[in-house]
Computed example of a mutant assay.
Amino acid sequence: MSTARESIEVAVPAGVAYEQLTHFENYPQFMSGVMSMAPIDASTAHMVLDIGGNRAEFDARITETRPGEFLCWEALDGPQVSEALRLEPMADGMTRVIAELQIDARELMPTEQHAVEVLNRRLKADLKGFKRFCEEAATKTTVNRPVTATPATIARGIASASGLTHATNERPPQGPPAAGNLGPMQHALNRDAARTKQTRF
């Protein structure tokens, strides 16, 4: 058996990374060399892979899981292929993904050394693709998240639509007071005007 080991840090929580790995239908979006992937049921899929220019076809099944921590899948027929993925939570919502890919490459590769080189390149590319896939999916989820309307934002929206808004800390312009609600100064001016009118006659 030829074995390749690689790791990468992904900017999503371990639970999110684990969820993406449990869905075989996601694999063509980040796994290099996938010629076709046909899910059979929730944990099994028919895979056709290009491994170092050689075609490998088999049914694969998820054989072991620990939610948010570990996942392993392996071929049920054809060449012996298996991959174990361990997830280690890190600070700031990051996750280290540690992958180990094993394959019996005697039928596919000319030498053991060649097989290990091919698998290392393949696994490194797969992990980079997985990082990109997870982080882009997380970004889309954040961007498309609906904004919750609070009573304050609703009130501001209504005021804006009716043209009733004004600059912050700025009082709306005051018109003349309505009749019957005159200030003391206006009452005094009215009395003086009335007296002047009387003296003229």
Score class of each variant (00 low, 15 high):
Gln29Tyr: 12
Ala161Asp: 14
Pro89Arg: 08
Leu182Val: 06
Pro39Asn: 06
Phe201His: 11
Asn181Met: 05
Asn190Tyr: 02
Glu6Phe: 04
Gly163Ile: 05
Ala167Ile: 00
Ala137Lys: 13
Ala159Pro: 01
Leu119Gln: 07
Arg86Glu: 15
Gly33Asn: 06
Arg195Lys: 13
Ala159Val: 05
Thr168Met: 11
Arg121Ile: 02
Glu117Trp: 04
Leu182Trp: 07
Arg5Phe: 02
Ile158Gly: 02
Ala137Arg: 13
Gln198Trp: 00
Asn144Glu: 11
Ala14Asp: 12
Thr65Arg: 11
Thr196Pro: 00
Ala152Asn: 10
Ala125Thr: 14
Ala91Ile: 08
Gly33Ile: 11
Ala38Ile: 07
Asp41Ala: 02
Arg121Leu: 11
Ser7Glu: 15
Gln113Cys: 03
Met109Ser: 14
Val12His: 08
Arg86Gln: 15
Glu170Cys: 00
Pro184Met: 09
Pro13Phe: 12
Glu83Asn: 11
Val12Asn: 08
Ala99Ile: 02
Gly175Asn: 09
Leu182Asn: 12
Asn169His: 12
Asp192His: 10
Ser36Gly: 07
Gly183Asn: 15
Ser82Met: 08
Gln20Trp: 08
Thr168Asp: 15
Ala75Phe: 05
Lys128Asn: 10
Cys134Glu: 04
Glu136Arg: 14
Gln198Arg: 12
Pro67Met: 09
Gly157Lys: 07
Arg145Trp: 07
Thr168Arg: 15
Thr63Val: 15
Lys128Ile: 01
Val143Asp: 06
Lys124Pro: 02
His187Asn: 11
Gly78Trp: 04
Ser2Phe: 02
Met37Ala: 03
Ser162Leu: 14
Leu85Glu: 13
Thr142Cys: 02
Glu64Phe: 03
Pro151Ser: 05
Ile8Tyr: 03
Ser43Glu: 09
Ser2Gly: 05
Leu108Trp: 01
Ala149Ile: 04
Met185Phe: 10
Val143Lys: 15
Glu135His: 09
Glu100Leu: 01
His187Val: 10
Ala60Pro: 01
Arg5His: 06
Glu117Tyr: 08
Ala38Phe: 00
Asn26Gln: 10
Gly15Ile: 03
Pro146Asp: 09
Ala138Gln: 13
Tyr18Val: 01
Pro39His: 10
Ile103Trp: 00
Ala42His: 08
Asn120Glu: 15
Ser2Pro: 00
Glu19Cys: 02
Arg106Glu: 07
Ile62Lys: 09
Arg122Leu: 14
Ala60Glu: 11
Thr139Cys: 06
Phe130His: 07
Gly180Thr: 04
Arg121Trp: 04
Asp41Val: 07
Asp59Phe: 03
Ala45Lys: 10
Ala11Gln: 12
Gln174Asp: 02
Glu107Phe: 04
Ala188Leu: 15
Ala11Asn: 15
Ala149Tyr: 05
Ala167Leu: 11
Thr150Ser: 15
Val97Ser: 01
Phe24Ala: 11
Thr141Ile: 08
Glu88Val: 10
Asn181Gln: 12
Ala14Asn: 09
Ile51Gly: 00
His166Lys: 09
Asn54Leu: 00
Glu74Pro: 00
His187Gly: 06
Glu88Gly: 00
Ala99Cys: 05
Gly68Leu: 10
Thr150Leu: 13
Pro173Arg: 12
Asp77Cys: 04
Glu19Pro: 03
Met31Ile: 12
Ala56Arg: 03
Arg191Glu: 13
Ile98Tyr: 00
Val147His: 09
